[in-house]
């Protein structure tokens, strides 16, 4: 298993956390894991929604000091 990589998308409005995640996921290999940092409260809904629709895997999500830490794995 490759090590978890961090995507720092805090305090961004454009392209925004989900677009950042999509970019990284596209270039990744199956099994790669990412921890996305986001201060956008929308991320907690739109990231799981996309992950589910496209068929990747949500690992966890938690909020620490106002920052969402969302962990995902590329599954296909």
């Amino acid at each position: 298993m490759s090590e978890m990589r961090i995507i720092d998308a805090r305090d961004t409005f454009c392209p925004g956390p989900l677009m950042e995640l999509i970019s990284y996921m596209k270039r990744a290999s199956v099994g790669d894991e990412f921890e996305l940092l986001s201060t956008d409260k929308g991320s907690i809904n739109d990231i799981p929604e996309w992950i589910k629709k496209v068929g990747h895997e949500m690992l966890s999500s938690e909020q620490v000091d106002g920052v969402w830490h969302i962990k995902v794995r590329k599954a296909k």
Binding site: F13, C14, P15, G16, L18, M19, I22, G42, D46, E49, W50
Partner: peptide, 10 residues
């Protein structure tokens, strides 16, 4: 559009 709304800027 790639995400769940029609532009990334809300």
């Amino acid at each position: 559009y790639p995400i769940g709304r029609i532009h990334t800027i809300e």
